[in-house]
């Protein structure tokens, strides 16, 4: 394992096995996050982003979730082979997570001070009182008055709750922060504030972050690296510059085409045709082929592997079309 990597996921496969169906949520994802880097995991709802995130903490709900294969390396240790006490030591201490919905992520019958203090108490060996004092400092750090540590979650607004969730996650200075759609459930004006706070804290504490989102704007704002997921597979990954300015995958192009552009208000949106395939019944070959404007017969034959784009060390794409050396996306054709 590369010394500079904080997280390395190799060929992760997760299924949800229910009576009615076998849902293939994650189908062989590879991810690396280097120290102090922020990776954006972009994709539609149901693409397997949250499952990937939960796998890192080995928290995929089982049943029905089953991690079929793969390795998740954190600091030279495979999460999937950790014993329960090792997992407990890792969670919250080495890796922390911020959840999508702050409304439901906090325990309604515990004061926020106790909830922040709990992870300090568990990982830093402090007693309850000392942990509570430290929790107050954490509250101050996320911009909430210390006196509110004695309040319960229902006394906070949505944005404030998400600040509390961030305080819980950062309480023990984890090396890696997983943020699962941290701003989706918030008002637009609050989103910017929370995002700004996260950016600043990550820089201060020199953490790495895995940011899960479907919002390309958020990715552009925060991430240095980007991975685009479709139906449980990574279809394109690279630095933000690679993916945003030199995109190679038709799906990535589709995502950008469906973004409204404030500067050119007259321009028509180009939505991606069709719907994401049912993850319990994936098509053979490339899962995007049925919706892809460039799809050919070959696309339905085999699942394309991630391949380096023109020998780049950072930029990879999984698309059969590049077997033809002259193939270019519409966006890349006019010499842009």
């Amino acid at each position: 394992m590369n010394e500079d990597l904080v997280l390395q996921i190799k060929d992760l496969v997760v299924h949800y096995e229910t009576e009615d169906a076998d849902v293939h949520a994650v189908n062989g994802i590879d991810i690396e996050i280097a120290k102090k880097r922020t990776l954006g995991l972009v994709g539609e709802t149901g693409a397997g982003k949250t499952t990937t995130a939960l796998s890192i903490l080995n928290l995929v709900p089982n049943p029905p979730g089953v991690i079929k294969q793969g390795e998740i390396w954190l600091d030279g240790e495979n999460v999937l082979e950790m014993k329960p006490h090792e997992l407990e030591h890792m969670r919250g201490n080495d890796v922390a997570m911020i959840f999508q919905d702050p409304m439901t992520a906090l325990n309604p019958v515990m004061t926020v001070g106790d909830q922040i203090g709990e992870s300090i108490m568990l990982h830093q060996g402090l007693d309850k009182k000392a942990a509570f004092e430290k929790a107050k400092e954490m509250l101050k750090m996320v911009g909430i008055a210390e006196s509110r540590a004695y309040d319960y979650p229902h006394q906070f607004s949505g944005g404030m709750k998400q600040r509390v969730v961030i305080a819980i996650a950062l309480a023990c200075n984890p090396k890696l922060l997983i943020a699962d759609e941290p701003t989706t459930a918030l008002d637009v004006t609050i989103q910017a504030q929370v995002l700004e706070l996260m950016k600043q804290l990550i820089r201060e504490k020199e953490m790495s972050m895995l940011l899960i989102t479907h919002d390309l704007g958020v990715v552009a704002e925060v991430c240095e690296d980007v991975a685009v997921v479709y139906a449980g597979r990574i279809v394109e990954k690279g630095t933000a510059d690679d993916v945003f300015n030199h995109m190679r995958h038709p799906y990535t192009e589709g995502l950008f085409d469906s973004l409204p552009n404030l500067k050119q208000r007259g321009e028509e949106l180009v939505p991606i045709q069709g719907l994401m395939p049912d993850p319990s019944d994936l098509p053979p070959g490339c899962a995007f082929a049925p919706r892809c404007p460039y799809a050919t017969e070959a696309c339905t034959k085999a699942v394309p592997a991630l391949q380096s784009v023109e020998g780049s060390a950072t930029h990879f794409v999984a698309c059969t079309a590049y077997a033809d050396p002259d193939f270019k996306l519409r966006r890349n054709r006019d010499g842009k």
Binding site: E88, G92, L106, V165
Partner: peptide, 11 residues
């Protein structure tokens, strides 16, 4: 969700 939060904390 708060049960997952608690687990993610290392409880």
């Amino acid at each position: 969700d708060y049960m997952t939060t608690a687990r993610a904390k290392g409880c």
